[in-house]
Design a protein around this nucleic acid. Structure first.
Length: 284
DNA sequence: CGTCCAGGTCTAC
DNA sequence: GGTAGACCTGGACGC
């Protein structure tokens, strides 16, 4: 099912406050009225989905805002036609034409940056633990107690003990706190990076300027958060997985050679190659 | 119990 | 510009 491919598109998509089930995505967001609601997207009939949120029905204008959030998260505006044309000509990737290739996005680039920093130099279990603690300690609680992802302001104001003792984020604590302060103070405006008019190099330069964000994080963010698909995500998971699936050596040059024909979509082609067999139980 | 390492980054040569 | 070493943490492994 097409929706499942989006929900299982990458590991970060399943981190709190998101929860992924078969054909279902739920998350927790504060609406324009600051009221916190749980939002659920559930695939129903073929190629359709039901969107719901708990509590009283939002007013019409707010309902529109919630639909906008869903559209943003599911990247409904992304046109992958050019990628599909290339993939159709590649026997190992022709399957994506059925509707794969969309990366579930967080509602804000900031959330994606924080989560990506939490994937660096640690096990996936550690990433889950850190993000879970961050949400539980700093997010805003809704009526049922589930919490939003904290805003940059909430994170900037938090004492470092939250990062050290609750999250157990180790040396990442400083990166996270500084990122939050940069965004909360307005010194950097990450949401602007969604602007398709910005050259890739400029987007990369700005991401790299964030503490804790290096080449891997830039590639991951370009792919999962910003819909820019040229960079290969090269890390301790992708390279061994590539080697296992392809039999080719686990180095960047081999990957570059394999996916060069995908041009500005080579990063996405690589990611699709790696995740073709992901199912709900296998998301890592 | 020590060493290594997991979806790296930063600093100092 | 390229490359060691340090860096938090916790789980896996060898001894």
């Amino acid at each position: 099912m097409i929706l499942d491919r989006v929900l299982l598109s990458h590991g970060v998509a399943s981190l709190p406050p998101n929860a992924i089930g078969a054909g279902t995505l739920s998350t927790v967001l504060a609406g324009p009225d600051r009221r916190v609601r749980k939002l659920t997207v559930r695939s129903s009939a073929r190629d359709t989905a039901t969107i719901s949120c708990d509590g009283p029905l939002p007013q019409a204008r707010e309902a529109e805002w919630w639909l906008g959030q869903v559209a943003k998260m599911l990247r409904l505006e992304d046109d992958l036609t050019a990628f599909y044309e290339l993939a159709a000509a590649d026997p190992e990737l022709a399957w994506v034409v059925a509707g794969a290739g969309r990366m579930l996005a967080a509602p804000t680039v900031f959330e994606e940056v924080v989560k990506t920093i939490c994937t660096t130099n640690c096990s996936w279990a550690a990433t889950e633990r850190m993000v879970k603690a961050l949400v539980e300690n700093l997010g805003t609680a809704g009526e049922d107690g589930t919490r939003t992802f904290p805003t940059a302001e909430q994170m900037a104001e938090a004492p470092s003990s939250v990062y050290r003792e609750r999250m157990r984020a180790g040396y990442r604590a400083r990166y996270l706190q500084e990122c939050a302060q940069m965004v909360a103070s307005g010194r950097v405006t990450l949401e602007d990076l969604r602007d398709p008019g910005l050259p890739d190099e400029e987007v990369e330069r700005r991401l790299l300027s964030l503490p804790g964000v290096g080449p891997y994080a830039v590639s991951h963010l370009m792919l999962t958060a910003l819909g820019r698909y040229h960079r290969l995500v090269l890390d301790s998971w992708t390279l061994p997985t590539w080697a296992k699936l392809s039999g080719a050596p686990p180095d960047a040059r081999a990957v570059e050679a394999r996916f060069a024909s995908f041009g500005r979509y080579r990063g996405l082609a690589f990611w699709m190659y790696l995740t073709e067999h992901w199912t709900e139980s296998q998301v890592e």
